[in-house]
Amino acid sequence: MRQFSWISFVCVATLTCSAAWAGDDPIIGVWKTEPDRKNLTSHIKITACGDAFCGQILSAYDASGKEVQTPNIGKKLFWDVTSEGNGKYGGGEFWVPLIDVDAVPQMTLEGDTLRVNGCEHHICAHQSWTRL
């Protein structure tokens, strides 16, 4: 009986761990943006937020690489983004700090590069982010 319990535990633990690993998504992590119009780069942390993904501004850096403080640090950059399969993500909303508007995000993951596009009506912007 004791052996049966141990084997059952190992089987359940293995299935649970496998499911957790299968749920990991390659978009999750910390990403470095391209320089913006103020020549600042940011580090963006992407996490799972329920059944979707969200991104938060962790830190910002000037052209020399020195960390700078901005009022945007700690703010959500995007939310409710979902996987569309084949490395594509979309839906949700994307906040564009420089012009203070919300846009519809589209992201494409290619290796360690995340191509990020955001459009508000007919105005679109794009960047390539690099995994840190």
Rank of each mutant, 00 (worst) to 15 (best):
L132R: 09
D51Q: 13
G29C: 09
Y89K: 06
V12N: 07
K38M: 03
I28C: 13
N86Y: 07
A19S: 07
A52R: 14
E110D: 15
S64R: 03
Q106R: 15
C54Q: 08
K88T: 10
I123S: 12
P105H: 05
I27K: 09
A60H: 07
A103R: 04
C17V: 15
Q56C: 05
I27P: 08
T113D: 15
E120I: 09
P71F: 01
L40M: 05
P35H: 05
I73G: 02
I46T: 14
V96D: 13
A48L: 04
N86S: 15
C17N: 03
D100W: 00
H122Q: 04
P97M: 08
I123L: 10
C11W: 03
V96R: 11
V116Q: 13
K38T: 03
P105L: 12
P26M: 07
C49N: 07
A63K: 15
W129D: 11
C119N: 14
R131M: 02
V12E: 05
T70R: 08
E93S: 11
S64T: 14
W95H: 15
A19C: 07
I7Q: 07
E120M: 10
S42H: 10
S5T: 09
W129K: 10
D24W: 02
E120W: 00
Q106I: 04
R37M: 05
I28H: 00
V81E: 04
Q3A: 12
V101G: 02
Q106E: 13
